[in-house]
């Protein structure tokens, strides 16, 4: 097959970067996987909290444990990001944010909104 031999080749990894849309998409996936695993903690906590007055008290007590509190903060943060990214996804299904100008803006907004939710979830849990 005939090929132009002087095509530019870029193997400098420092200059190769994911577009911001790819980054927001990968985080959407990662947060989904985290919730698949983290649902264990939430389900355990919900089950305990519904098990009579003692259960409710012990669920509150468990949330004072720094590890449980961290898991809860993580879950709420990750849920918040996944929520915003999901709404962006639904909007894209309707044909929005698909141009060269609007797509990075929507991805940027998703990342910033996610960061804000991480902070707010932390304030809520502690």
């Amino acid at each position: 097959m005939a090929m132009t031999q002087d095509r530019p080749v870029n193997l400098d990894l420092k200059t190769i970067r994911f577009p911001i849309m790819a980054i927001s998409s990968i985080i959407h996936r990662v947060t989904g996987v985290i919730m698949f695993l983290g649902a264990f903690v939430v389900m355990a906590l919900l089950g305990t909290s519904l098990d009579g007055p003692e259960g409710f008290a012990s669920a509150l007590e468990a949330m004072d444990n720094p590890i449980v509190a961290f898991c809860l903060w993580g879950f709420v943060s990750v849920l918040g990001y996944h929520f915003v990214a999901g709404i962006k996804h639904l909007a894209m299904d309707l044909g929005h944010f698909e141009t060269l100008e609007s797509a990075p803006k929507a991805a940027q907004f998703t990342l910033v909104a996610g960061a804000v939710i991480v902070v707010l979830a932390g304030i809520w849990v502690w």
Partner: peptide, 27 residues
Amino acid sequence: SAVILAAYTVFVIGYLLLNDVDAAMWQ
């Protein structure tokens, strides 16, 4: 399923934020 889960999330988190929830109320 995403829409259902989003609605459930908004309801439960909203409920916890707007109410001073105790055992009897939650259960």
